[in-house]
Design a protein around this nucleic acid. Structure first.
Lengths: 194, 194
DNA sequence: TGCTACCGAATGAACGTTCAATTGGAAACT
DNA sequence: AGTTTCCAATTGAACGTTCATTCGGTAGCA
């Protein structure tokens, strides 16, 4: 089980993709393995060739989705750029990812508010979180942000961006660069040193 | 079934309370009716005396919880107060409600990100939403807020407050009035006309 | 006597998971 | 080159369990 860690197995990907789509539509409990199998066009047993159980399937889907978000966040990020530019870049990237990957956003939101998140200590992502936190710390030290607990900033920003993205998507609005800037500006004005 | 709409049935309340607590702990799918019955100290069949199905139980729990939030929001609200005071009052109340009712907050967040929310058109609460929106509109007209789509303001504010409350609760911090003011200030600075 | 509240064992469907059987392709061997 | 061996990949029917829901019955009250 779970033999080919390196090989790009199309079925494995198909299973993960179907799970993401179906969970967005019907929720965790609303999507039986049989339905995932049908949607991914594999036999029910095949899923168990790649994943030990439904739970690990969902956890691995979470890891993959989270890593995709991380990668999207970092796109075009230049360590040498001014701090404020880097911050705006990160927020733009995050907001764009949500808008362009609604199933991923919905799934991530469901996941973090579910018992899975509690029972699965995030291990490696702690390193990433510490990176984010130290990024915020330097923003505070640099005089850009209010003197807020830096651990509070990540969730707060995510909350705003997710809420805004959800709204845009539910209203089926055509979003423009101006839209994005408006939302990012709300975040920035909220936390910047006045 | 569902006969006593007016009477205050303690069993009915016990069932709703147990459902709220268990869903916070184990999620929608993780809480069988049998467990709800055991926790509420009633027989499994009794639940079906008060609710048609698990789905309607959850929907009715949502309605009750949402109404509790609405009531908490309005506590001490004075129509005659200055606009900015009223706005701060609303945000304080909302944040306090989340902090003091963690199960309610977790449940509401799970619910809005679940398929229930899609399949159950909120009917009456639309009126409430329109009240909120017109409240924001007068904030924009009065020159307090940026010129943002007022429908965007509600979700965005909720996103920030929920994220902050979640963080406070997960870190098991003792929260003070200063804490609250800090979070509310983030929201205010984000959307106020600069 | 009739009605409401309540009980909890029984029911049957749905679900996650298993497994014996089949395929296919890549080595190993002749 | 042809044959055999081997094992990962895949299938889907079958299994056992869990769960939401039902239902026949009891108790108490009007």
């Amino acid at each position: 089980m779970n033999v080919q860690l390196e090989t790009n197995s199309s079925k494995r990907d198909a299973i993960l993709n179907s799970t993401l789509l179906l969970i967005k539509e019907y929720g965790f409990h609303g999507t039986p393995m049989s339905q995932i199998a049908k949607h991914a066009q594999v036999a029910a047993g095949t899923i168990y060739h790649y994943f030990d159980s439904k739970e690990t399937l969902i956890i691995e889907l979470y890891i993959r989705t989270r890593d995709q978000l991380t990668e999207a966040l970092m796109e075009g990020y230049e360590q040498s750029s001014p701090y404020k530019d880097r911050f705006f870049k990160l927020m733009h990237n995050q907001y764009n990812f949500y808008i362009q990957n609604e199933p991923a956003m919905v799934f991530l939101e469901q996941y973090v508010n579910s018992p899975f998140a509690k029972n699965f200590p995030e291990k490696d992502s702690i390193l990433f979180k510490e990176k984010i936190i130290s990024f915020f710390e330097s923003g505070i030290d640099g005089g850009y942000f209010k003197n807020i607990d830096p651990r509070l900033l990540g969730p707060t920003i995510r909350g705003t961006l997710v809420a805004a993205a959800n709204f845009r998507l539910s209203e089926q609005m055509i979003y423009s660069e101006d839209d994005i800037t408006e939302v990012v500006q709300i975040v920035w004005d909220g936390i910047k040193r006045q």
